[in-house]
């Protein structure tokens, strides 16, 4: 009796310790976000003081002013990020659903090989084709054009894989056969019957595509030349390189760049996590 009580006590002490460590870790994870929002409301001289501010100040408007002074095209950059991420997402959903549907529902010659190629491309790192891709873009006359960002990303292998898994598990083949007997064509079946059933998969893949494009840095870095056409991450980096570093403006700019993602994450964290772990669990 007493032994088990001691054990219980020791166990709960260890558990309490665990809670404490997990909590401290969570604080560490959130700390940069906290200081990003706090610094966004302080002037640079406040931020430079020792110790630095830990609670919100009143210089938000001033920082925004500095931000727009140094980056006169900030809203263009924001719109560019939205435009590229939005188009990438729409195209990726459409093309991945098409390919995933073919792999899930049809038997055709060369299917195994085609699918192996799709999965094989996942092993190719982005940097490998980076240099010649820039050349391809310059030959096409696409340098400095947003289409150089959304066209190559319009059908990703991971998206095809996710769509195939979802369609194979969620849509019965009998449904398609029934539609065929009723005289519906192959493309009609896809657009009128399959696509409306893909809501959850579209949500998951859409989120991870949008966020990947929104945060993309390497692509815009080698493609976009005019500051007017920069995406938000590029614009923020440009802010960093200018003489005295405007910390307040950098913080408010970073906050504007991350806030949409944080809000989306808070409302759809489950779907996010599902999407970003899907490849690992099933693969």
């Amino acid at each position: 009796m007493s032994v088990s009580a001691v054990n219980e006590n020791r166990k709960s002490a260890a558990t309490m310790m665990g809670y404490l460590i997990v909590f401290a870790g969570a604080v560490l994870m959130l700390m940069p976000f906290w200081f990003m929002f706090v610094f966004a409301t302080h002037t640079s001289s406040d931020i430079l003081s020792v110790p630095p501010p830990v609670w919100f100040g009143s210089a938000l408007e001033q920082n925004l002013q500095v931000l727009f002074e140094r980056l006169p095209f900030f809203w263009n950059n924001f719109a560019m990020s939205l435009y590229v991420a939005g188009l990438t997402t729409v195209l990726n959903l459409l093309f991945c659903a098409m390919a995933g549907y073919a792999f899930a529902m049809y038997e055709f010659k060369g299917k195994g090989l085609a699918f192996a190629i799709v999965m094989g491309t996942l092993l190719l790192p982005q940097f490998l084709g980076l240099i010649p891709s820039v050349l391809v873009m310059s030959w096409l006359g696409w340098l400095n054009e947003p289409r150089a960002l959304y066209v190559p990303a319009a059908c990703t292998a991971i998206g095809v894989f996710m769509m195939r898994q979802y369609i194979a598990s969620a849509i019965p083949k009998e449904l398609l056969d029934a539609a065929r007997i009723d005289g519906c064509g192959e493309f009609g079946i896809f657009f009128r019957i399959v696509v409306p059933l893909l809501g959850p998969a579209f949500g998951t893949l859409g989120l991870i595509t949008f966020i990947g494009s929104w945060n993309n840095f390497m692509g815009p870095l080698v493609i976009m030349r005019d500051m007017e056409r920069f995406t938000v991450p590029l614009a923020l980096r440009a802010l960093n390189g200018m003489g005295d570093v405007p910390w307040g403006a950098i913080s408010v700019g970073s906050a504007l760049a991350t806030l949409p993602m944080i809000v989306m994450f808070v409302f759809a964290s489950k779907r996010f996590i599902q999407g970003m772990t899907a490849g690992a669990i099933k693969g």
């Binding site: 940069p32 945060n215 840095f217 802010l239 970073s254 760049a257 993602m261």
Partner: peptide, 16 residues
């Protein structure tokens, strides 16, 4: 909370 860093812009967070 632990997952949040993974979805935020590397550029923004590195600047912070």
């Amino acid at each position: 909370i632990y997952f949040l860093p993974f979805i935020t812009s590397t550029v923004a967070i590195t600047l912070v």
